[in-house]
Nucleic acid binder design. Sequence first.
DNA 1: GCATTTTTGCAATAGTGTTGCAAGTTTTAA
DNA 2: TTAAAACTTGCAACACTATTGCAAAAATGC
Lengths: 137, 137
Amino acid sequence: MVVIEDILKKNQLSVTDGRKKILELFISSEGALAHADIEEKTGENFDRVTVYRTLNTFVEKGIIHHIPTTDNSILYALCKDNCEAGHHHDNHVHFICDVCNKTICLDEVTVPTVQLPEGFRPSHAEMVVNGVCGDCK
Amino acid sequence: MVVIEDILKKNQLSVTDGRKKILELFISSEGALAHADIEEKTGENFDRVTVYRTLNTFVEKGIIHHIPTTDNSILYALCKDNCEAGHHHDNHVHFICDVCNKTICLDEVTVPTVQLPEGFRPSHAEMVVNGVCGDCK
DNA sequence: GCATTTTTGCAATAGTGTTGCAAGTTTTAA
DNA sequence: TTAAAACTTGCAACACTATTGCAAAAATGC
């Protein structure tokens, strides 16, 4: 797939097998992925360390973003096109399905602003909703 | 302090040095605490395992609750009185100060409901706001 | 194609959380 | 007050997750 190489090149990254494979995984998967998912789905082809480094690189370049979770695991999902290196626009709500356990970016649902107490100034807000997703209902 | 022992007894827990010390810590600290904070602040007096088990016990009994974080660490904070074992009422917004790094429960700010896409049914929502707190402003 | 730059894999290390078990402490109730 | 029962603790061992340094390998630029 040429498209995948282009994404890497556009972000000034060397095109390597590992990066292509991992990026492909993100593109073809609906929900968010954890490090463990990636290791599993890429088979035994890559070193754990390579996966970690690739994920970090992708986050730095703004190709994927970090998703907050309630249960203390790290999840990643593809960024939309308006994300740039070091400046994410991922202010949407994340949804975790209690049934299929997928984490889904609700790109069309933005995090609402809340009224904070006197003296508090917000800079960023995250929201995670649990429940049953459209596929599992 | 007699009050601390009463809290433990009310929750059918044996009164031990470790539990008293850790509960005291929570009561006297403003923000949320991580496992590491507790180990640090209780000195070398307790085993790591004891701290883990005490925290789990407190969560089960509804004395403290789990706070979601963006950065994959586990934080705990005191529950308000209306929390009971197995049934938390901690649906308030949590605030993380970018300056002092404290995590604060905004008990008076409840998590807003958002409009989800067709077919999604929510069961629970968490919200974490970053920014500058009242003390650091 | 060759030199430079970047990435990878390995080994080692650190952090975090859990479990089994024996020893110690707290509770209960006589 | 004391002894048995119940519970908690500390230790050792283990598992999982993540990071770093370094040499070998691959990708890039010319």
